[in-house]
Nucleic acid binder design. Structure first.
Lengths: 331, 331
DNA sequence: CTGTTAGCGCTTTCAT
DNA sequence: ATGAAAGCGCTAACAG
């Protein structure tokens, strides 16, 4: 019989007195005789045998890994999405590879090239910025990709996105409905996907009400620190009775700046955030926030990818999640 | 010459008119003649060739992946650590596989078994709870592991931990130094690693000052919601002039409960958190917090693992990070 | 310097 | 039902 190839599988086979094929079968739950099954299980247990993931992947052509690339770790909304995606894919037997691309779009390109090396079976991508080149690379990918956010023009991929216009309308209508006259807007960079979408939503919502836009300021990025500066600038040059902010971090910054300037929230000025993250709840007063369905988007994206992994030829799906408004004490 | 094996490498080799070995060499930067190098590069570019990660891994015995298992995504301190670890390992050419184990220790066991399947080259583990069985499994692992937090007894692994006793002393001394008489403590579950350590620190710090412990309450977990309940309970039965909290989430909960009960912070009651996360800064008033060096612990852990991956026989290293106190407005 | 060849550990026909 | 053997795509001796 066989030369002593040393593959771990051989050790088990040898010990059980069967062929490696039988061992493989038993361990993968394929039909085998009672006798063989028992011997293999025993041998495997005694040896503490654990099959090698890499070898299996090479053979079957699947890594059982899913890659996730989110724009901005540090922003609680992405953390929440990550968590949810992790839950869903783990339950489906996949591992999550975190490719934390920063704000730099180049990282995303690198990632897509990397994906073609087959370290993961698919990718969930939530780009902060979507330059032309991203579309090109997206089209060239050999692996399934699901986009959270809008897909670049000409790219045919499953995707799920928020309805920023409807979301902003929720916020603006809420404020207008309680008689707020001067609704200002603290946005993040408008050259980002969410920045552009939310700005659009703000303008659209006011126009629908037949109103002129209020004062708009743009934070350098979507962080608390940038929000502090932006809110200061805003309150320096205007006295709005309501401030809509492009996310909760900016909102809590606006809240703190307003409070420190002696304004009462919500009496003097109402504040509304977006994303409805945990931190909206732990601010004091708690911040009213537009829930853009981040968790649901994440879950949906994960499921879309799992579906496509399962049936590569399933019809394309583009899902839009409807927003809701969580009213708290700041408005 | 050769039968048409279809390995992708063959396509490039064929096109370049060389052997697969030459292709491999060129692509891995090993010496080759000018002529071959050029032809291979050209062929690879034309074909859009990207080497397969799985096959390479199987051959070289390394996946270039590092697994990370943190106790509690959702707690900002872990998010920060994750971010830092991601940074360090990515720079070193590794991918990060996120194994978000929940509070259930069983998940950690599963993970360790999984690790033995070789999906990653090493693991960074930050256990929330460390039952006996974890130690057993830790000892049985065939792959390098770095622990953030204390190692279970009898386990010899690289590890890096915070000095909770020194950290608590910083907080307590600070409060005592400004004349606070009744220093209460809001802790998380004491059957967790940090819960036990911080409780110990609290008691030790007060004893060192020759004082009796103040009122202690235990939140159901380390979340904001649990903190609200715990803080309510505390302020129901006592009127401390200072509250130390086992983390920033609990601290911000205590802050809000105190404020809502009409207490002025820091005048009536001072509040100090631990971990010194972003949210300590965005509370109003901003919360004084003990910096237990989370980022540094994370970075150190990542480097320890990279070092061990590089030299498996390097001497064991156990690092303790010294805490500092970030004084803000709540004390 | 370059090509041939032997596997890495596993799954999966294909015979038996 | 079981075993022998052929690779998955790549790297690394070893020859030449």
């Amino acid at each position: 019989m066989a030369e002593a190839r040393k593959s771990t599988l051989w050790l088990v086979a040898e010990r059980a007195g069967v062929s490696i094929a039988s061992v493989s079968r038993v361990l993968n739950g394929q039909p085998a005789s009672q006798r063989v099954t028992e011997r293999v299980r025993a041998a495997a247990a005694e040896l503490g045998y654990v099959p090698d993931a890499t070898a299996r992947s090479l053979k079957v052509g699947r890594t059982e890994q899913i890659a996730l690339a989110v724009a901005d770790v540090g922003n609680p909304v992405y953390v929440g999405m990550m968590h949810e995606i992790s839950r869903v894919v783990t339950k489906a037997g996949y591992r999550l590879v975190l490719s934390s691309t920063g704000a730099d779009p180049k990282d995303q390109i690198d990632l897509l090239v990397g994906l073609n090396r087959g370290f993961a079976d698919g990718l969930i991508l939530s780009p902060l910025r979507a330059p032309e080149e991203l579309g090109t690379q997206l089209r060239a990918s050999r692996f399934p990709i699901v986009i959270i956010g809008s897909v670049p023009p000409g790219v045919e991929l499953d995707n799920v996105r928020a309805d920023s216009v409807a979301g902003m309308a929720l916020a603006v209508d809420h404020l207008a409905g309680q008689g707020r006259e001067r609704i200002a807007f603290v946005n993040g960079p408008v050259d980002t996907v969410p920045g552009a979408a939310r700005r659009n939503g703000y303008l659209t919502a006011l126009k629908a009400l037949g109103r002129e836009p209020g004062t708009q300021v743009t934070a350098r990025d979507f962080t608390y620190q940038a929000g502090l500066r932006a809110a200061s600038t805003l309150l320096e040059k205007d006295t709005p009775d309501a401030i809509v902010c492009a996310n909760d971090l900016l909102a809590i910054a606006a809240l703190n700046v307003a409070t420190r300037r002696g304004l009462r929230v919500p009496d003097d000025v109402a504040i509304v955030g977006m994303d409805d993250t945990d931190i909206a709840d732990l601010a004091n007063p708690a911040i009213t926030s537009v829930n853009l369905g981040a968790t649901k988007r994440a879950r949906t994206a994960a499921k879309l990818l799992l579906r496509r992994l399962d049936k590569p030829d399933a019809p394309l799906r583009q899902v839009v999640i409807e927003p809701t408004l969580t009213v708290r004490d700041s408005s």
